[in-house]
Write a protein that binds this DNA or RNA. Sequence first.
DNA 1: TAGAGCCTACATGAACAACG
DNA 2: CGTTGTTCATGTAGGCTCTA
Length: 360
Amino acid sequence: MSGSVRRTTMPSIEIVAKEAGVSTATAGRALGGYGSVSRKSREAVLAAAERLGYRPNSLARSMITGLTHTLGVLVPDIENPFFSRALRGIADAAHERGWEVLLVNTDEDLALERKALSVLTERRVDGLVVAPTDVADRDALQAVVDAGIPVVLLDRRVPGLEADTVGIDNRAAAKDATERLLKLGHRSVALLTGGDEKLRPKLSRPGLRGVERLAATTVGARAAGYRDALVEAGIEPRPELVSAEGFRREDAAAATRRLLALPDPPTAILALDSLLALGVLQALRGLGLRCPVDVSLVAFDDADWAEAISPPLSVVAQPIYELGAEAGRLLLDRVQGSDKRFTHRRLPTRFIERESATSR
DNA sequence: TAGAGCCTACATGAACAACG
DNA sequence: CGTTGTTCATGTAGGCTCTA
C-alpha cells in the first residue's frame, strides 16, 4: 500500500465513470462537454453524476489546463471608494467570463506589494490587475510579466512595462477643471495633491521637461494639467500653492490651513480626490470660512456624498466602475491568448457642475 | 542511520488507437 | 466517421528504497 489517504469523500470522475459503466475518458467528455460522446453514454454519465453528487475538482483541472480561473487584484486600499468601485467592475467582468477574483491590499507599501505579487504568483493566478504603489518600481511587476502572467495596470502607468493600462486622461481632466476655475475669475488657484513632495520644485522649474517627467504618475499628470491651464492663461504657477502633504483627510485639512494663512491666499482649491476635498471642507469650517463664498472648491471623483452636502460639490467624475470592468476584460483577453499590441485605454471623464465653485 | 533519489497518489484532459 | 477506451502528463507531497 502506498499509505496515501483519500482526503475527501467527494466522488471523482473515476467513480462516476464506474457507476455509469463507461471509461473515465468518456465520463470526462460527457461532463466537460468536449469531444464526441453518444447520447446514451452522456445521459448515463450525467445521471450517475447527479446520483453521486459529483462536483468537478478544480485543483485537478488546473493541474492539467494550467489555468486556475482566478485573477489577482492588487490595490493600495480597498477602503478607498475609488478602488472598491473599480473592484466591483473587475469582479463583474471576471464573473461574466467564469473567473474568480483574489484581492490583496498593499497599503501603498512597496514591501507588501512585492509580497502580494509573490503570493499571487504562487497561487497561480491567471492574470493580475494592479494599481501599483510606486510607478518607478518596475522590477517586481516585470518579473511577473516575464513569468508569463499578463498584467493590466489600473489608474497608474509604469513606464516600460509590457502591460495594458486603463485610466483616464488625468492631465486633460485637471486642465479642464483648472480652466473652469480660472474662467470664474479666480487668479489664485491652489492644488491639493495628497502625495509626492517632489512635485512642488518640479512645478516651479521653468521649461516643460520637469512637467513631462511628472506626467508619468497620476498625481503628476494632474499637476501637469493644472500647470498647463495656468500657463495658457498667462498666470505664473506659484509653488507654494501646490500642496503635497499626504493623502489623509487630516493632511488635507492641515494643508488647507497652511494655504489660507499665506499672505496672498488662494480663492479656489482643486483637490485631487474626494477624501482630500473632505479635509478642505473640515478646515474651512474650523476657520469659520464658507464654501464657495470665501473659497471655491472642485474635486476629483464624484463621491456618494458629493451631491448631498451643502453646498453640493462640483467634481471631475471618473467612470470608475467602467475603468475596473475594462481592466478586467482586457486582462481576460490576454489570459485567453490575445497577443494584440499593448493598449493604453483612456476613458472619458465628466465635469459635474454643482455649487461649490462660484465666480469671484 | 541519514540522506538522496525514486515512486505513487491525486483528478482531469488530451493524444492516440481501435472498434463497429 | 462517430464513438470509445487506454495511456500519459500535469505539480506536489509524502512515503519508500537504496546507498554510503
